[in-house]
Write a protein that binds this DNA or RNA. Structure first.
Lengths: 348, 348
DNA sequence: CTGAAAGCGCTTACAG
DNA sequence: CTGAAAGCGCTTACAG
């Protein structure tokens, strides 16, 4: 604690090296107009005294913070959400590779005014140079207001036709291909009665997956039975409840169900098990994401894998590039999908 | 971008409210010596203009950053490490509850000079008010130098007798109790030939678990066979290799093995399976941590659960309290252990 | 190639 | 209760 008092600053380094603060700043910032001998002389002192420029002073004088914010929306108890955690680490590692830091923030709900205010504060305070949002509704006023203010914001899963601000950087999942893969695979296994448990419809990927489902079914001449279009969201409980309700309704079952994501599929499988039904014998199931736990389910879950790590890398790198150069995405990036066949679907 | 130009500042707010910057600052900082009417008048303008004080200016003028650093050491590819991710979220959520932000940083190795320098930089730059280290060796020069410089540092898993700087805040696992629970349980099941796969011996919990194992065995009059004391670390691969080597040696097997943590136990189980041995029929196994995947193993893994969330809460809250008031831990916190009995141990 | 000086936007004694 | 002013530690035109 005591030693915190005499922090060394650029004036002190300048004195010690026999130059001006300007020159110290020039070598710290690696400017070209410093002769090698001067640079070396100053560097020696800097290293000898363990000098690191005070970040607040640098930022106040016009430098960037080299920090990006990462905002997880509606993540429930995130500490338990494996996928959300993966995304956090992915952003941290990618940003770190660019010499950037990540300030992670969890936002329970965008309906909570205080919570929204706290997010705005982070931007307005200039704590960060830009931020990434994961899990936000497709048209989220908080995000729109931030973009309108000119802040650099990266968004996962959004589609707002017509909006194309340069400071709005968007990446998406290739839901159309993924859903086509899923439906196509089930069709190959001779399924004709295929249902879906939808995701959250206020997020872009919710309706996008649903519409992709409709198109994929139509393309194969398969009818969509409204009784088998089950409302849900992206959580496990939604899958459990959707199946429980369907079972309770007494209506006939489809032979296969596509879940909006793997968590939903887990819930659906639990509900089926709880009612004495077997997967895939009584019902085939396909999920989305390829969650870490998917391969460990019983049966192992067939799913459409999304390369989240790559997706986050594109977004993080893109955001940093925008911050540094003002270069916007030329076109929205879309993560490829891949069908991972395991044991949760059977041939009819 | 354009709107970024005319950021509003305290001078502007002062002008609009018809007061001085000093007064604006007083209401922003909630100082008592401002009459209610003045406060309201200023607050109205602040809200109307969406004014948030520039953080760098505040810090430069003497305020705290309200940010803590979280440093994950030797975390391999952290994006894939579920447990590490839980710890990150736990710290973020706890800090957020105190109005603090978390800057997470991943440190491959404390042997990498550049990596170490980058960590130091974060502290010296005053980017953070303090930092938490997870996974560092027990006596880590980087940490010691930071503490010597007076920085506030929280540490998970450390024991350095005699060192008791107020700015060194330590939490530990209750390895002694946990190991006693594990050995006691196996002894009850009539196991006498018990082995151990050790953790990393440069971390405190490595040797601490081992010594606790020796004591727990001795307490029950059980002999420790050196052939069954297997070197390892805290990764899954160490468990796999330890068992593979033991099997390859042709030496007799113990009837039970305690793994330094659950990841190691997973590796051990895989190795046994690969050699056609069954758990618990041929060998009983106990892990430590109660990893998310432990209950999903085949057989489900019996383990000593550690309440990581509580542990991180104690540390995070303690660190923030120290930053704000200078109050040190009165005594190192120790997380309680609990035996979770599942299916990986059999009675002899 | 280099230094003196202004300026970044706050907070905080100090004086009244 | 309130304002004028110094100071926090940098960077960056500007002038030479």
């Amino acid at each position: 604690m005591a030693s915190r008092r005499n922090e060394i600053n650029s004036i002190e380094i300048a004195r010690l090296a026999g130059v001006s603060r300007s020159t110290v700043s020039r070598v710290v910032n690696n400017y070209p107009n410093v002769p090698p001998e001067t640079r070396e002389k100053v560097m020696r002192i800097i290293e000898e005294y363990n000098y690191f420029p005070n970040m607040s002073a640098q930022v106040l004088a016009g430098k960037k913070t080299r920090t990006i914010g990462l905002f997880l929306v509606d993540a429930g108890h995130v500490a338990g959400d494996i996928l959300a955690n993966m995304l956090i680490s992915s952003v941290i590692e990618n940003a770190s590779g660019c010499g950037y830091y990540v300030l992670t923030h969890i936002l329970r709900s965008t309906a909570d005014g205080d919570a929204v205010r706290r997010v705005k504060e982070i931007f307005y305070q200039r704590r960060i140079d830009g931020g990434i949002f994961i899990g936000a509704p497709n048209e989220e006023p908080l995000i729109e207001s931030l973009i309108a203010e000119g802040f650099a914001v990266g968004i996962v899963d959004q589609h707002l036709p017509g909006k194309s601000d340069p400071n709005r950087l968007v990446v998406n999942f290739d839901n159309a291909t993924g859903m086509d893969l899923a439906v196509g695979y089930l069709a190959e296994l001779n399924h004709r009665n295929i249902g879906i448990i939808n995701g959250a419809m206020n997020r872009f990927s919710g309706p996008d997956k649903y519409e992709s489902f409709l198109r994929a079914m139509e393309r194969r001449g398969l009818a969509v039975n409204p009784d088998w279009v089950l409302p849900g969201d992206f959580h496990e409980s939604a899958g459990y409840e959707a199946i429980s309700r369907l079972l309770a309704s007494g209506k006939p079952l489809p032979t296969a169900i596509i879940a909006a994501n793997d968590s939903v599929a887990f819930g659906a499988m639990k509900a089926l098990k709880a009612h004495g039904l077997r997967v895939p014998d009584d019902l085939s199931i396909i999920g989305f994401d390829d969650h870490v736990l998917s391969a460990m389910q019983h049966p192992a879950l067939t799913t459409v894998r999304v390369d989240f790590d790559l997706l986050m890398k594109q977004l993080t790198d893109g955001l940093i590039r925008y911050i540094e150069t003002g270069a916007a995405f030329t076109e929205p990036y879309v993560a490829p999908s891949e069908l991972i066949i395991r044991d949760s679907c059977r041939s009819l």
